[in-house]
Amino acid sequence: MDARLQGFTLDDYLRCVDLYERVGVDLTLETVVGIGSVCRRQTTDEAVRIIETLWSMGIRLHGFGFKVTGLREAAHLLYSSDSLAWSLNATKRA
């Protein structure tokens, strides 16, 4: 995963997409694009709207730090996801 999108508002993420386009990177051609800064807001309407918008643009998203509650809202819009909380918990129990 070479491309990542960062922001807080939808406009922030769209500006980030625009920056990639300006330098000739078509994010829809990337295998997967990481989306950051939504893990703490993953169950909010705004975060889901951001993910929906990027998904509707044809960008295959990887959600960093998604928990089960966030996946209930957005799993159908994500190409992949991970959860450090789950990994840490599994490591401590091993």
Results as ranks from 00 to 15, higher is better:
1 M>E: 10
1 M>F: 12
2 D>N: 14
4 R>S: 08
5 L>M: 05
5 L>S: 10
6 Q>W: 10
6 Q>P: 05
7 G>Q: 04
8 F>E: 13
8 F>C: 00
8 F>S: 14
9 T>P: 05
11 D>Y: 06
11 D>P: 04
11 D>I: 08
11 D>R: 10
14 L>Y: 02
16 C>W: 08
18 D>Q: 15
18 D>R: 09
19 L>Q: 06
19 L>S: 07
20 Y>T: 11
20 Y>V: 11
20 Y>E: 12
21 E>I: 01
26 D>R: 13
27 L>F: 01
27 L>Q: 12
28 T>G: 03
29 L>H: 13
30 E>I: 12
31 T>Y: 03
32 V>L: 07
32 V>P: 08
33 V>M: 12
34 G>I: 04
34 G>M: 01
35 I>V: 15
35 I>P: 11
36 G>D: 14
38 V>P: 03
39 C>H: 09
40 R>P: 06
40 R>K: 15
41 R>N: 04
43 T>V: 15
43 T>R: 14
44 T>I: 09
44 T>R: 06
45 D>T: 15
46 E>K: 08
47 A>F: 13
47 A>L: 14
48 V>P: 07
48 V>K: 05
49 R>A: 14
49 R>I: 00
50 I>S: 03
51 I>L: 06
53 T>N: 00
54 L>W: 11
55 W>G: 04
55 W>I: 00
55 W>H: 15
56 S>G: 06
57 M>Y: 06
57 M>D: 03
57 M>F: 06
58 G>Q: 04
58 G>R: 00
59 I>S: 11
60 R>S: 10
60 R>L: 01
62 H>Y: 07
63 G>N: 06
64 F>G: 06
64 F>W: 13
64 F>V: 15
65 G>K: 07
65 G>E: 02
65 G>C: 03
66 F>Y: 15
67 K>A: 09
68 V>G: 02
68 V>E: 09
69 T>H: 12
70 G>N: 06
71 L>V: 14
72 R>E: 13
72 R>K: 15
72 R>F: 10
73 E>C: 02
74 A>D: 01
74 A>S: 13
75 A>P: 13
76 H>Q: 13
76 H>R: 14
76 H>T: 12
79 Y>L: 01
80 S>V: 04
80 S>G: 11
80 S>E: 10
80 S>D: 10
82 D>S: 01
82 D>E: 04
84 L>M: 14
84 L>R: 09
85 A>H: 04
87 S>W: 05
87 S>M: 07
88 L>N: 13
89 N>T: 12
90 A>V: 12
90 A>S: 12
91 T>Q: 10
91 T>C: 03
92 K>V: 11
93 R>C: 00
94 A>T: 15
